[in-house]
Computed example of a mutant assay.
Amino acid sequence: MVPTGTTAAREFRAAVIGSPIAHSKSPLLHGAVYRALGIDCSYSAIDVDEAQVGAFLDDLRAGTAWRGLSVTMPLKGAVARLVDSTTAPADVLGVVNTVVVGVGPHPTLTGHNTDVAGVAHALAASGVGTPQRAAVLGGGGTAAAAVAGLAQLGAGAVSVIVRRPAAAADLQRIGGALGVEIALVPWSHAAEVVPASDVVVSTLPPRAADPLARELAAHAGFRTDGTLLDVAYDPWPSRLAAAWQQAGGRIVPGLDMLIHQAVEQVALFFPEAGADRAVVLRVMYDAVGAVRR
């Protein structure tokens, strides 16, 4: 299940898994950092779907060179159930985007969630303080991480805007565990709630928020001084980000979140690199030609 080849010659291995996976920028980010820090680690993108992930993790436990995995859609919930243990806040969220492989002949797998730190750090770096009126678009695993990231910034309440509120009811349990009041708002009210929010995090797939963007752009009186983080970074700017910026708001690219969560992953895979956080951040921004905030 775990592929072999030229990467096996490296001392350590890591990868991002999900399906589809060819678009992932994680190999570019991690590869640049390991080269810059002199860490002999290959990092690849491996297409793994939900039917394959159990066997893939079993093979990982039988390996010796693996340091960790980045986990993307649609595997974040499944991996949380399959690893040997999880850390906070992954244990509360039930969502894992990072797996650390233990050292030894029978390594254990520990699940983490660095998306939470990615959201919090990306927003804080853009100047966001304590959100007073926060909103999240979407109700999946990334939305759960967004709620937790907003909680880290001090948000006491978050409106979660979803197409089927009943399907996102678990976010209210998560909010309760984090000390955040969650209001599940039907999508039909998005154009009312979003403009009234000082911080908005869109966790929707690319182009899924386009209808909302058109509705906001068509409203001549729409103005905002709030901040929008759109986790969908391709294409960029998204229509939602463009409409938000046109109305006077500040936009935070999803690429910022991706980079900040990847910095946390590097520190988990290679704790000895943790002291070089500023270097890791600079190398990752340079690797994708992005402007650091």
Rank of each mutant, 00 (worst) to 15 (best):
A51T: 11
V194M: 13
I21K: 01
A146D: 01
I174D: 08
Y34F: 15
K76G: 09
G249V: 14
G118T: 03
L29F: 00
L268Y: 03
D84T: 08
R61F: 06
D230W: 07
A278E: 12
A247F: 13
Q265I: 01
A168W: 06
R282F: 01
V96Q: 05
V180K: 06
A191Q: 11
P271L: 10
A36M: 01
D225N: 15
I259W: 04
L109H: 07
V266T: 09
P3A: 06
E272I: 06
T87P: 02
V79Q: 02
S202R: 01
I21N: 03
A218E: 06
G104P: 12
G138M: 02
L29E: 02
D49G: 09
G38P: 12
V96L: 00
V199A: 04
V48N: 11
S24P: 02
P74V: 13
A218N: 03
S24A: 09
A62N: 10
G249A: 15
A90Q: 05
V53P: 07
R223T: 13
I46V: 11
T98M: 04
V48R: 07
A247N: 13
A65S: 15
F222V: 12
V200H: 06
I39L: 04
A151F: 07
G94F: 08
P211Y: 12
A15W: 02
S85C: 11
V193W: 03
G118W: 09
Y285R: 06
T64G: 14
A8V: 15
G54S: 14
H106M: 05
P27K: 00
A122S: 13
R67A: 08
P211S: 05
A290Y: 11
I39D: 02
L28C: 04
L178G: 08
A243K: 09
V283H: 00
S42H: 01
P235F: 02
H106Y: 10
V193M: 01
D225C: 12
L37F: 05
A135N: 00
A134W: 12
H30M: 01
A155W: 00
W187H: 15
A232W: 04
M284W: 07
D225Q: 13
A155G: 00
V92K: 04
